[in-house]
Design a protein around this nucleic acid. Structure first.
Lengths: 159, 159
DNA sequence: CTGCCTGCAAACTCTTTGCACGAAT
DNA sequence: ATTCGTGCAAAGAGTTTGCAGGCAG
């Protein structure tokens, strides 16, 4: 999904909900899609303000649910009392996160077997899965030796 | 691991760290092991105070890391800005959580394949897994029809 | 015009911390 | 006796909300 596709999706979602397309909401959208890495609400605020300095923290927090609800943004909670966000380039993919406990980077890894797990739970327990998350906290072997995580390229790794 | 085993393990852990075995710490331990379900820090405080009313909120928060560090308690973060705790009856088991989005209950399900996932990540990406979590949010099919979740018995289900 | 949307700041929730007193060893 | 542990209350981090004014439709 391109940024332009996402923008249309977001505007359509707003319209469908009877919500207004304001400069602030668009600035927040643009700020989100200008990020390369996972970002926090506070970082999103800073980037949105660089685009439109009238954006307030409250509006960022009020807009995030709409971005997530429209499917253009994904929320990632890694258990740090702080949520991370990421443009959702493929909303149908099942992804796991690998969190480097040394450098705090978050890697997204395609994990299609998660759907299998969901349906297994479903059939065995009489549950209807809504969402799943699989996260691995790990030490980065190359970090200690090389001083940097060399796994940035692993983002699209499939397991 | 029985409650008595856990108590010994906790006391041993405290002693090994040069920490004191105080009435409050024991009261908090007993309160934790008197719970049948997952509980929050606030609930633990209430139960600990029922045993020893001198226990303060601060001491609960200061004791929780020791309970977890000694392996008698497990922390479960389901992304609700609120942590849950659970007596750790088998510290070697790989467990996933199924969270009912209707009744907020948390079910623990043995998921041994998670170790396979961890080692796969390890070998493919050059990472050393520290911990893993797998959580499924789901609707409880029987909740709407029967009015209650019928999956309490599923706690020990293995997938 | 109408009423949703906004910024501001205060409120809120959960957790952590500084301090002086108290208790375990 | 010493040192660690404690309760209290205030601080802290992240997020939410009430309010009066502002702008999209």
């Amino acid at each position: 999904m391109s940024t332009e596709d996402a923008r249309v999706k977001f505007r359509t979602h707003l319209a469908a909900q009877g919500l207004r397309v304001t400069n602030q909401r668009i600035a927040i959208f643009d700020a989100a899609f200008g990020q390369k890495e996972h970002f926090t609400a506070e970082e999103l605020l800073a980037h949105a303000r660089a685009i439109d300095d009238s954006v307030s923290r409250a509006t960022v927090y009020r807009t995030l649910p709409h971005l997530i609800g429209s499917g253009v943004l994904r929320e990632v909670d890694i258990g740090k009392n702080l949520k991370y966000y990421l443009p959702n380039t493929d909303s149908s993919a099942q992804v796991a996160q690998v969190i480097c406990v040394d450098c705090d980077k978050i890697f997204e890894i395609s994990a299609p077997f998660m759907s299998w797990y969901g349906s297994t739970v479903s059939s065995k327990l009489g549950l209807t899965p809504v969402s799943q998350r699989l996260q691995v906290s790990a030490h980065c072997d190359s970090l200690k030796s090389a001083g940097v995580c060399k796994h940035r390229a692993a983002v699209s790794t499939q397991i």
